[in-house]
Amino acid sequence: MAVRTPRQVGEDVWKTRIEKVNAELVTLTYGSVVAQLCKDFRNDYVQVNEQLESMGYNIGIRLIEDFLARTNSERCRSFKDTAEMISKVGFKIFLNITPAILNWSQDNKQFSLIFDENPLADFVELPDDGKAVNELWYSNILCGVLRGALEMVQLQVEAEFVSDVLRGDDATEMKVTLVRVLEDEMPVGDE
């Protein structure tokens, strides 16, 4: 059988193996989460960003299992392959989008995901308190999701948004950087 591209895998899994739900349910529910956090942290958006990232991390730890169980994908051979899998399969089968991969660094350890569409932020406007547009990364949960999911497959990464159309930027861009490949953990007391 011919090797299928990540795009084909993503499309195929999305069409045949994914139970769907109304996007507005997810959009509005995510909105309620961000709104609740803004309340809980009294509009300290730096803390809200951190909390969103950490919730995303927990989601990533779970989500990767669902991803692997549904796609039966092989281990990626390079970080480039990983980027393809994230965009064409990962984002496709959960959020039905395929962010573009751009801006590879020379050492191939950093790339950007450009989001033309972002279901989490559909019909969202940041609070106009003069602060949120500079401080809040509304979709920061996605950074955590990538960090958590990739850590589970032994890739330690850092992910952060560098621009967001919600803030008036031209594009929504997330930078993903490979920190290191993790070793398997050893049993306690074993050397």
């Binding site: 927990n58 989601i59 730890i61 779970r62 299992e65 669902d66 169980a69 958590g148």
Partner: peptide
Amino acid sequence: IYAGLYVEYVVKNPLSPPE
């Protein structure tokens, strides 16, 4: 067991912690 039971009933169970 992994894909059908563990992922569905442990991983997706909101009342189970992530780890």
